[in-house]
Amino acid sequence: MSNASTHSSGFNISRLFLYIVLIIFAVYYLLPLYVMLVNSVKPLEEIRGGDMLALPDAFTLTPWAQAWSQAQIGVQATGLKPYFMNSLAMVIPAVLISTLLGALNGYVLTKWRFRGDGIVFGLLLLSCFIPFQIVLIPMARMLGIFGLAGSTSGLVLVHVVYGLGFTTLFFRNYYAAFPSELVRAAQIDGAGFLRIFLRILLPSSGPIIVVTVIWQFTNVWNDFLFGASFADVDSLPMTVALNNLVSSSTGVKEYNVHFAGAILAALPTLVVYVVSGRYFVRGLMAGAVKG
């Protein structure tokens, strides 16, 4: 770089400025994560001692083990582990079902248009804007009627219904840009409704599936209100359990355990983002550019 031309040296100064700004923002956003990580591996006395930003003197993983399997949440000292499993048992079917139904809806609303399809889509979209609080009581009543009150299946149903508006919107916009001539070609080739969906559209939907899965996964995993309202002791999701852990009013506040628990609760969404985040932007763009 020492013998760089005038062109690229001017370029480098603006680059440098850019990097400085970016680094400042990165630090700003990473600081909370740093605080959580650092304090989750310190003994409690060290946190009480003062400096939140200092690296640990005595490194320990005990808070993590406690948060995972020993902390007192509710009646028994089970740690967050069973609630983590509850969340998984809720998130995985909820994401899969809402994504699949959203894809089917998008396919029908773009490629098998019917009278009044615009109204159906409009109503589905409307569900994206209904505040959660409004549906709490009617939803509780519905779950009671279905016999799903207080169960993980009930939560799955709630999240599928609530997610359908968004997943439909994602897939509808993606498939709107998908050439209808392909569907026609497949019809001449003798493929029916489901075969066209499964063989032609779905295999070409990678980016939008990623977007929908990330969106649904984070929303369902991070949901607190529905979990707190509709779950029973044995189906409480991670978010509610974390709250119970942190806000328990008796005994000593074990900040290190709380930090570890909070990271555990955030970990799955973090992993989903890191693994497939770059497809997220790509998928969001794919529908937008051609639409």
Binding site: E181, R184, A185, A186, I188, D189, G190, A191, R199, P203
Partner: peptide, 26 residues
């Protein structure tokens, strides 16, 4: 009948052989 489309309408997820053979497959 068989039709050739303006955009060609080749199935993007299948290779050429599968594109040609899709009708026979169904």
């Amino acid at each position: 009948i068989a039709m050739v489309f303006q955009s060609y309408a080749l199935y993007p997820n299948m290779n050429v052989a599968d594109n040609i053979g899709f009708g026979m497959e169904t």
